[in-house]
Structures are given as structure tokens and as C-alpha cells.
């Protein structure tokens, strides 16, 4: 589906080698507008909003950050490790963000999920979870399952 020139420009910035080495789209060939619309639907069907998912991610990130790279146990079963790198990461939507990689392991199931500070911003402000196959793609279903988030 066609999209606005503004989204075209942003999608251009998401290509590999423009802002980040591998880009934000993975091997996703859909237009940005469709990626956004599809994820919006997935998140709505899960019973959440982008805001709620981003808040859950940010909360864990803030706790993990205080341990400077050490794992922290949250809610008794989530092991959160936040690793900071030098420099700032630019968002294709505009703005600069700290380079922080967050890994959360669910100790009950052994499953893990990964995200960055930039992911939180892109999810909260733009409903963008990155394209399918992208290294930093946050799969909404995985997020809800691993973090054991409940509606309401």
C-alpha cells in the first residue's frame, strides 16, 4: 500500500547502512505503513496498547540499569541485564537515545527477550516494533509471554 512521503523518508533511513548497520527492517518487504498497521492490530488483539508495552519494558530497563551490567532479579523470576555502550543511537523518527541493550530471561520458562532503549521509544511514540527478521525486532507476542504481562 502507498504511504506518505514522510513515511517514505523514514523508511529510507531504516535501510541497512543508513542509521544502523543492518537497518530496522530485517528481511521485511512490506511498506512501513503496513508494518505499523499490522503490529497495531497484533497488539490490540493481545489486549494491550503500545504505551502499556513500552511502560513495562521501561520499568524493567530502569531497574536493570542501576546494576551497571549485572543481572538483577525482578518480580522473583525475571533476570534483567542492561549493558550500556558508548555513543548515542539515532531514531529514524528523530531524536537520540542512549545505547542500552536489555536482556530479560524468564527463569521459570528459560525463555528470553532482548530490546534497546531505542525500541522502547519507537514502540511508545510510533508503534514501531521493527521489521520481521530484524535483530532488534520486538515480537509483541513474545514480549507479553516472556514478561508474563496480563491484560488490565
Amino acid at each position: 500500500m502507498k504511504q506518505t512521503p514522510e513515511l517514505d523518508r523514514i523508511q529510507e533511513l531504516m535501510q541497512p547502512g543508513v542509521i544502523s548497520k543492518d537497518g530496522f527492517l530485517g528481511n521485511d518487504t512490506r511498506n512501513l505503513t503496513d508494518i505499523l498497521a499490522d503490529d497495531q492490530r497484533i497488539v490490540t488483539n493481545l489486549g494491550f496498547t503500545h504505551q502499556e508495552l513500552a511502560n513495562a519494558m521501561e520499568e524493567l530497563t530502569e531497574v536493570g540499569k542501576k546494576a551497571f551490567g549485572n543481572p538483577v532479579l525482578v518480580r522473583g523470576f525475571l533476570e534483567v541485564t542492561v549493558d550500556s555502550s558508548k555513543g548515542k543511537m539515532a531514531s529514524p523518527f528523530g531524536g537520540l537515545f542512549d545505547k542500552e541493550n536489555v536482556v530479560v530471561v524468564n527463569k521459570k520458562t528459560g525463555e528470553s527477550i532482548r530490546w534497546t532503549t531505542l525500541n522502547i521509544h519507537m514502540i511508545r511514540d510510533h508503534g514501531f516494533y521493527e521489521g520481521k527478521g530484524s535483530y532488534f525486532r520486538v515480537e509483541p507476542e513474545d514480549l507479553v509471554r516472556v514478561l508474563e504481562l496480563y491484560v488490565g
Binding site: 548497520k21 555502550s85 558508548k86 555513543g87 545505547k99 541493550n101 535483530y135
Partner: peptide
């Protein structure tokens, strides 16, 4: 220089 996961420059 410390490696940044998937970083353009450090890679």
C-alpha cells in the same frame, strides 16, 4: 574501543 553489538563503527 569497546565493541557495540551490531554497531556500524565498531563492527
Amino acid at each position: 574501543i569497546r565493541r557495540v553489538p551490531k554497531g556500524i563503527a565498531t563492527t
